[in-house]
Design a protein around this nucleic acid. Sequence first.
DNA 1: TAGATTGTTAATCGATTAACAATC
DNA 2: TAGATTGTTAATCGATTAACAATC
Lengths: 224, 224
Amino acid sequence: MTARTPDSARDIPEATVARLPVYLRALTSFAEEGTTTCSSEELAVSAGVNSAKLRKDLSYLGSYGTRGVGYDVEYLRYQIAREIGVTHDWPVVIVGIGNLGHALANYSGFRSRGFRVVALLDADPTRKDEVVAGLDVRSFEDIESIVAEHAVSIGVIATPAIAAQAVADRMVANGITSILNFAPTVLSVPDGVGVRKVDLSIELQILAYHEQRKSIAPASEDAS
Amino acid sequence: MTARTPDSARDIPEATVARLPVYLRALTSFAEEGTTTCSSEELAVSAGVNSAKLRKDLSYLGSYGTRGVGYDVEYLRYQIAREIGVTHDWPVVIVGIGNLGHALANYSGFRSRGFRVVALLDADPTRKDEVVAGLDVRSFEDIESIVAEHAVSIGVIATPAIAAQAVADRMVANGITSILNFAPTVLSVPDGVGVRKVDLSIELQILAYHEQRKSIAPASEDAS
DNA sequence: TAGATTGTTAATCGATTAACAATC
DNA sequence: TAGATTGTTAATCGATTAACAATC
């Protein structure tokens, strides 16, 4: 009981989970360049973290390196992909096909990184019959049959803020258990449903805060 | 020297800084609804955090509430806006006017939350003379004059990954000191330049990780 | 064997939370 | 005065980091 869990299903800290995709991407770059082996230092530089943190993170997955040698790029890449769960594609629906929904539907990075957009939904009936990124824009009312047909568990909300909660409720009612929310609003969902938020203005405001402080700050680090 | 810094320029933890924009948004909602006063509990619910964390966060800014009563919505809203630095608009340039750049250029939330898009730049000469969101798409070569003319310190990168580092270098060379990066790549910038990254695939992969574990996890919390 | 690099330990740092004295 | 709610304290929790023993 107190021995380390031997195989999978260990408990990985949230901060580590958030970095695994970054490592995965760096390893994919290495593989594309033909690099077959790398050290924790090289991988760390490529991922923009320090190597102690990288090794600590990887240690939660298991022992996939070789002391004195480093990591096999392809092997580690696969192990991380497996841990994240992107060795097969996840079907995804996007709701809200405005400017942002358009951009998301056309984003090729989803496909290459473990996701497949299976449907585009919009509540506005005038948008129906539009074709975006090779997919028909369908009525939001079709969500039930689409989620059932494709066994969708991940939904993306790209609607105006005012509509987002209702969309989330409807997603959850139809069995979606993970939501990526681009609408600038706080969603409330039942326990067990995962939500991540991408908020463009908030990111800019965080930059603005630091930007503002640059002009105020005493020049204490100024070595000139 | 050991007394609390009396006025502004206190040291606010990063985690708090990242939440201030969320509080600001919640307060703006309250104001629009005509709510003039709120308690930490009400504001916390609206922002999706617990009230202890909210009060702790606000305590870094100062004492803007009244014990036994709560907060004046408009007053607190102004204090937070001032702390973030969005009592006046920040000029912003967007580089890379593909699908995502289009969406960002048209995003009305920037304008209402402290930012003004002053120029859209793209390296592709065939995109010049296009008008997006009421702005001419201009050559990336114009960045120097535009940054100088509008005193731009914040840049948004919405180019393909392959171009992003060169764009960032050029931004930094021209005096931009804060970058919001949508390209799926790690940027390296000099000390003193702030970078925030928004990575759509990474957000989905984090959701996928948790989604995957739901099917694997032992039903230890299952009370049925 | 000597050199290199991992995986792990332990110390440190920062963030969260509950509880409550202060005070309206 | 009694009730309400803030602002702060202190305990806890989680994340980071440097250092190094293990081991290729």
